[in-house]
Simulated assay, not measured.
Amino acid sequence: MVSAGISIGSEMSGGVSNVTVENVLIWDSRRAVRIKTAPGRGGYVRDVNYRNLTFNNVRVGIVIKTDYNEHPDEGYDPKELPRIEGITFTGVHGQGVRVPVRMHGSKEIPVRNVTFWDMSVGITYKKKHIFQCAFVQGRIIGSVFPAPCHNLDRYDERGNLVKKSDSQDVTDIGYDI
Score class of each variant (00 low, 15 high):
C149E: 07
F135A: 04
E108P: 06
N113V: 06
H129C: 06
L152G: 01
F135I: 04
K127A: 03
V111W: 05
N151G: 07
S106F: 07
S120N: 15
V121R: 08
F116V: 07
I141M: 13
K107V: 05
G142F: 00
G122A: 09
Q132K: 03
D156P: 10
H104L: 12
I109W: 05
D156G: 12
K126P: 02
G138D: 00
G105Y: 04
I130L: 00
I123L: 04
C149W: 02
P148E: 03
A134E: 12
K126G: 01
I141C: 09
G105S: 10
T124P: 02
F131Y: 14
C149I: 04
V111K: 03
G159F: 11
K128V: 12
A147T: 15
G122P: 06
M119W: 02
P146G: 05
A147Q: 15
F116T: 09
M119C: 15
P146L: 04
S143I: 10
G142Q: 10
D118C: 08
N113R: 13
G122V: 08
P148L: 10
I109E: 00
I123H: 02
I123D: 03
D118Q: 15
S106M: 06
E157K: 14
V121Q: 09
V144L: 12
R112M: 09
V121M: 08
P110W: 10
E108F: 11
M119A: 15
W117T: 10
T124L: 04
Q132T: 01
N113S: 13
I140C: 03
P148I: 01
S143T: 12
